[in-house]
Design a protein around this nucleic acid. Structure first.
Lengths: 138, 138
DNA sequence: GTACATGCAAATGATTTGCGTTCTT
DNA sequence: AAGAACGCAAATCATTTGCATGTAC
């Protein structure tokens, strides 16, 4: 937990906070480079891990390709387009009550839950093949 | 979709169906080898991918380490222990209604959702460190 | 001054893939 | 016979890490 301040860490967080998309490490690296050309990809990864451990950002797992990251702090749900791969935040009430329900049913002590919806975004409805566009801006 | 039968594929599915744990590819490979020593890890991966594409099995993503797999076909939720990493199925009613809710709220057409709970399993309560046991049997 | 953070490059580890061969239909 | 699927090993790709140096406190 003892971590010092660093320009690089602040920049990574700033870049991530500054977008509504849910970018991967590579994209964050490219953006960060624009402002600090010397920053390294390793440092981006190191800081993403640290920020996640601190609870300041969230990691969104993905089977293929790399993880996406999200700087939104409050609990919320995600929506992923099966065609273009974009990830969006959803403005739907979080069901905190189900944690207690699961605690009683299982004997675990639940700290949180992740809910992700999969479907097709409006632009992909017609049946756009996956390869056509990987849209990070959502 | 044109896929032929193969002893290897049947075996991988049999092994996965035969356990209530949610093993990774390596574990499935080791088990499969007991019955068919010549099977290769690449084949296990190939078949896991094919079976998943067919909808016969499910992939459980995990940030660190490899994916876990689940042969349970009907929709259900997962519970992961933050300490030992074990994954369990939960017997809690699936909320199909929230798909429609999200469709209306977002304009996406939702096909399904994934819900995963994180917490500590009864055996890990005291505060067992992560490294002590990676329990695949749950 | 201490020890955390960085840049760089090499290493890791899960998963995929190319290729020649074997099996299913 | 055609082309799936296999075994094997090399390749890929995201992410991690060792090391020497820089920097925050």
């Amino acid at each position: 937990m003892q971590s010092r301040k660093s320009k690089q860490r602040e920049l990574v967080l700033k870049v991530l906070t500054g977008t509504r998309s849910h970018p991967d490490a590579e994209w964050l690296y490219e953006q960060a480079r624009k402002e600090m050309p010397g920053i390294s990809l390793g440092t981006v990864y190191r800081n993403l891990r640290l920020l996640k451990a601190r609870g300041e950002i969230q990691e969104i797992l993905s089977g293929t390709s790399g993880s996406r990251y999200d700087a939104t702090v409050d609990n919320h749900y995600h929506l992923r387009c099966l065609s273009c791969g974009s990830v969006h935040d959803i403005d739907v009430p979080v069901r905190e009550d189900i944690n207690a329900e699961v605690e009683h049913a299982t004997g675990f002590s639940i700290s949180h839950h992740h809910l992700e919806f999969h479907g097709l975004c409006p632009s992909c409805r017609p049946g756009t093949p996956l390869s056509q566009s990987i849209n990070l801006q959502g």
